[in-house]
Amino acid sequence: MKDWLQSYIAAQHRAVDSVPLDAVAKATETVRTAWENDRQIFAIGNGGSAANASHFATDLGKGSSDAVGKRFRVQSLTDNLAWITALGNDYSYDDIFLRQLQNFARSGDVLITASVSGSSPNLVKAFTWAKENGLHTIAMVGAKRGKLADIAGQVIVVDDTHYGRVEDVHMHIFHMICYAFMEKTA
Rank of each mutant, 00 (worst) to 15 (best):
T58K: 10
F127N: 02
A139V: 11
S65Y: 11
F72L: 10
V68A: 02
F72Y: 13
Y91C: 05
K147G: 01
I138Y: 02
I96C: 15
T113H: 00
V110D: 10
L87T: 13
S120C: 08
P121F: 06
I112V: 03
L60W: 13
D150W: 01
S107N: 13
K131T: 03
D94S: 07
I138V: 11
I112F: 00
D59S: 08
A67G: 08
G69W: 14
S54M: 05
A67K: 13
S119N: 10
V116E: 01
G142L: 01
K131P: 00
Q154H: 15
P121L: 12
G146P: 01
N122I: 12
W83Q: 10
L87G: 09
S107I: 10
G118L: 03
N80W: 04
V124T: 05
S115C: 14
F56Q: 01
P121E: 12
K125E: 00
L111R: 00
Y93M: 07
W83L: 11
S107E: 14
L98R: 14
A82F: 03
N122V: 11
G118I: 03
G61Y: 02
A86R: 06
G134K: 04
S107V: 08
I84E: 09
Y91F: 07
F104D: 07
I84G: 05
G118A: 06
A139P: 02
N103H: 15
D79S: 08
D95V: 10
W129A: 08
D95A: 11
G134R: 05
R73G: 00
T113P: 00
P121D: 12
V124M: 13
Q102V: 15
A114C: 09
G108W: 04
I112M: 05
V68P: 03
L87W: 12
N103C: 14
K125R: 15
G108T: 10
S65N: 12
L123E: 13
A152G: 03
G63L: 14
D90H: 11
G142Y: 01
L123C: 14
L87I: 15
F127S: 02
T137A: 08
G153S: 05
A67L: 10
D90Y: 08
G134Y: 04
A82E: 10
Q100G: 06
A82M: 07
Q102C: 13
Y93L: 05
R99H: 09
D109N: 14
I138R: 00
L87P: 06
A126Q: 10
V110I: 15
T58P: 08
W83D: 15
